[in-house]
Design a binder for these strands. Structure first.
Length: 783
RNA sequence: GCCCAGGUGGUGGAAUUGGUAGACACGCAGGACUUAAAAUCCUGUGGCUGAAUAGGCCGUGCGGGUUCGAUUCCCGCCCUGGGCACCA
């Protein structure tokens, strides 16, 4: 009947390098919170697990021939031992690994439900293809447009991939942010990533052909200013419309674009490139003939892959028009288009726009869209930056996608596209053993070579069928892991309804800012889907995480990212061995503001070590233990209880520790303390330095663990200061402070302030024009 | 190029409904203890000036602005970190 509190950290990928000093930053922070919440009487869940599918294990297997499962098991053991040495209060009974078939059974189950609901589909999309290795590459493996393994050229190649329709949830992923308590910057990043925009789709007739070209624009009001059209090099109509005399040039340009990575395409943004296709469209509003260009700054993945270029009112179009000497027609007055495009939408009036001339931009957007609709030339449309999620990988070390392809079912119509689901009773579809972990020459996963696995019976018609050989990305398992913790051994469901109803959603989730747009968004999507199909009880609500905070990265000593190649990696085991687990924990919390990146500094660890040793000595006769210590210490301990408690809630761990250092220094300065101070200090210290606090607690004669004691309350009356020092300024410059009673009035303050010699010096012979009094803060004489 | 953060002493940082800039810690300097060193303890420590723990001036990335008063708010830049899919 205790109130539940579910706090969560992002579970680690158990890499071969072992625990990084960055991992414990987040784990310690929420361990402090978990311990405080337990002391406050909550039923706390603080679980840990391993996100163990992934590229590094697979690459290691390719290099050494050691099965990824073996590597993974070994790495998990190392991580477990390292995590345990830091004294985190994780629930070790609930440990999960995404590579466990009993776990990924449910990852596969979720995929099947998505397929059933039309959210999983196959389509052709471009992937990175290494021309010499003849395999598909992850973005991360493409470095400066070259293959990371062989250094050879990489190009884009179309490949059939499973996709998840996250775009269907785009609006809800934005709107529901109102229901949750995330750091504002996290919400902003997500909203910008989803990138909802409203505009119009407009059809342009191709000159001398039956086809038409549809563009998406957020500025339909500038339609009269469209002087050319740009299609992306991947546009499906391009081949058809290109004129014979431009064909060679266009083909060459498309080939070049294929070689460029997306990063390159964006880095070369300053100098725009493009070629004329030789074809024209007709502007529906004025019948003007408009040339069609091809340029790689237009992406097939956004909108329709084609834009109407309005150089007068879009800077990129402007640059392009200047470079290729294309006409620039002003249709919104208010700017100076001789220098730059005029893109302000809040002011400006239409010119050169026929019947729409004279309208404001916002009026024109509505009127022109309406006009397009009545003419059958286009309609209002919403677009998102967010794209559907590519869900398949041509890799071995991932969850097999539980789908079977059956020609027979396709021909009979039993399956529209030939794909048939593996029945739930056959899950988990286990990853078979292979001899070779390399993808095949034609870019298929290594699973494709295992004939007796690939060839199977169709679950629907019993005929010959072939299994899908792609596997899922590493995000598949990490999207829902927080639900499995609630019921980790359940083999009837991903988690039982009662357990879900009790524990879900997560109350506080902390993770890296780098996961804001991928993991965090993907997992919100998956959770919403599970909620929609009733796999999660209604009472849990439609958001997985009520609160989301983020920690900054820990960098190497020089402020650079820690990496093997830079040789600036700090091994947590060595720090723990030399300084102890509590020092390690407290240092990581003390080193700087929790949400910001910060360089590691071994010198700083020394200060924390001294702090903890001073505490030890206080409790070992270093100061006198008296019946009742000074009032000033009593005030300070209560102020510290408040400060530490508040700071844990706002994640200002560094100032909480600083407050405890101040308390320590005060006790040493006084040379004495009493039982009340001694007890309370250990209680508030215990979440930060659990080993030390527990040891001292036991030495004081307590039998029960300090972690089971209640969190101390502070006394409101005791923390109030009776006297304050009021700042006296003359013309805004600090001149003196005066000791005054808390509730002093302006008249009294003026009197005391004017009596000060220092102040009088500055006021002598001057006329006081104004006096500003801020109660409890300052008094300022303006002369 | 786009989105999100950040820039304060020798170093990590503290302080924001606008109100004493530099808490706490590291480092450094001086001292105590020691045969000596380490550890520990004490004192000092933003810069310039000054005999001064008297006073003065300067000082929170840069340039402007608002204000009695700006690290904090506004405008324009520069630099660093995280993310990226040129988002029309």
């Amino acid at each position: 009947d205790k109130e539940k509190f579910y706090c969560l950290i992002e579970f680690p990928y158990p890499s071969g390098e072992g625990l990084h000093v960055g991992h414990p930053r987040s784990y310690t922070a929420l361990d402090i919170l978990a311990r405080k919440r337990r002391m406050q009487g909550y039923n706390v869940l603080y679980p840990i697990g391993f996100d163990a599918f992934g590229l590094p294990s697979e690459n290691y297997a390719i290099k050494t021939g050691i099965h990824p499962a073996i590597t993974t098991e070994k790495n998990i053991k190392t991580f477990t031992q390292q995590l345990k040495s830091l004294g985190f209060s994780f629930d070790w009974e609930r440990v999960i690994s995404t590579t466990d078939p009993q776990y990924y059974k449910w990852t596969q189950w979720i995929f099947l439900r998505m397929y059933e609901h039309g959210l999983a589909y196959k389509t052709k999309i471009p992937i990175n293809w290494c021309l010499s290795c003849k395999i598909g590459l992850a973005n991360e493996e493409v470095v400066n447009g070259k293959c990371e393994r062989c250094g050879g050229p990489v190009e884009k190649r179309e490949k059939e991939q499973w996709m998840l329709k996250i775009t269907k949830y785009a609006d809800r992923l934005i709107d529901d942010l109102e229901k949750v308590d995330y750091l504002e910057k996290i919400k902003t990043q997500q909203i910008n990533w989803i990138g909802r925009s409203e505009g119009a789709e407009i059809r342009f007739e191709l000159e001398g052909g039956d086809d038409n070209l549809t563009v998406y624009t957020t500025r339909p009001d500038t339609l009269f200013g469209a002087t050319f059209m740009v299609v992306s090099p991947e546009h499906p109509l391009l081949e058809k419309i290109v004129s014979s005399d431009q064909a060679r040039e266009v083909t060459e340009y498309v080939k070049q674009a294929k070689r460029k990575s997306d990063l390159e395409r964006s880095e070369l943004a300053k100098e725009k490139t493009g070629v004329f296709s030789g074809a024209y469209v007709v502007n529906p509003v004025n019948g003007r003939k408009i040339p069609i260009w091809v340029a790689d700054y237009v992406l097939m993945s956004y909108g329709t892959g084609a834009i109407m270029a309005v150089p007068a009112h879009d800077q990129r179009d402007y640059d392009f028009a200047k470079k290729y000497d294309l006409p620039i027609i002003e249709v919104v007055a208010g700017g100076d288009i001789s220098e730059n495009a005029y893109a302000d939408i809040d002011q400006g009036v239409l010119v050169n726009s026929g019947q729409f001339t004279g309208l404001t931009v916002s009026q024109a957007i509505i009127k022109i869209t309406q006009w397009l609709e009545t003419q059958g030339l286009g309609q209002a449309a919403v677009n998102y930056k967010l794209r559907d999620w590519v869900f398949s990988r041509q890799r071995y070390w991932g969850e097999p996608i539980p789908m079977v392809y059956c020609d027979n079912c396709k021909s009979t119509g039993a399956s529209k596209d030939g794909w048939v689901m593996v029945p739930e009773k056959d899950l988990p579809l286990q990853l078979p053993k292979v001899k070779n972990y390399e993808p095949t020459d034609d870019g298929q996963s290594p699973l494709a070579l295992i004939e007796d696995w690939v060839n199977t019976k169709c679950p629907k018609c019993g005929g010959k069928a072939r299994r899908e050989t792609d596997t899922m990305p590493n995000w598949a398992g990490s999207n829902w892991y927080f639900l499995r913790y609630l019921d980790p051994r359940n083999n009837k469901a991903l988690a039982g309804a009662e357990k879900l109803a009790y524990w879900a959603p997560v109350d506080w989730y902390n993770g890296g800012m780098e996961h804001t747009t991928l993991h965090l968004l993907y997992s919100r999507f998956v959770y919403k889907f599970l909620y929609d199909i009733g796999a999660i009880p209604q009472s849990c609500g439609s958001e997985p995480y009520l609160k989301r905070t983020s920690h900054g990265m820990i960098l190497g000593a020089g402020g650079e990212k820690m990496s093997k190649s830079r040789g600036n990696v700090v091994n947590p085991d060595e720090v723990i061995k030399e300084f102890g687990a509590d020092t390690f924990r407290v240092y990581e919390m003390f080193m700087g503001p929790f949400d910001q990146a910060i360089p590691w500094d071994t010198n700083g660890v020394v200060g924390v070590k001294r702090f903890l040793e001073r505490i030890w000595s206080i409790y070992h006769g270093g100061v006198e233990s008296v019946d009742q210590a000074d009032d000033s210490l009593l005030t300070l301990i209560h102020q510290t209880i408040k400060k530490v408690g508040d700071d844990i809630e706002t994640q200002d761990y560094n100032t909480a520790i600083s407050a405890m250092m101040i308390l320590t220094n005060k006790i040493i300065e006084l040379g004495r303390f009493d039982q009340e101070v001694a007890h309370n200090f250990l209680l508030i210290l215990s979440p930060f330095a659990p080993h030390l606090a527990e040891e001292l607690w036991q030495e004081m004669g307590f039998k029960k663990s300090i972690s089971l004691e209640p969190w101390p309350e502070y006394d409101q009356d005791l923390i109030k200061e009776q006297e304050i020092s009021l700042v006296v300024q003359v013309n805004g410059k600090f001149r003196d402070t005066i000791k005054v009673e808390v509730g002093i009035t302006q008249q009294q303050a003026e009197k005391i302030a004017l009596a000060s010699d220092k102040v009088a010096n500055y006021l002598e012979g001057k006329k006081i024009k104004n006096i500003i009094f801020v109660p409890g803060r300052l008094i300022n004489f303006v002369i």
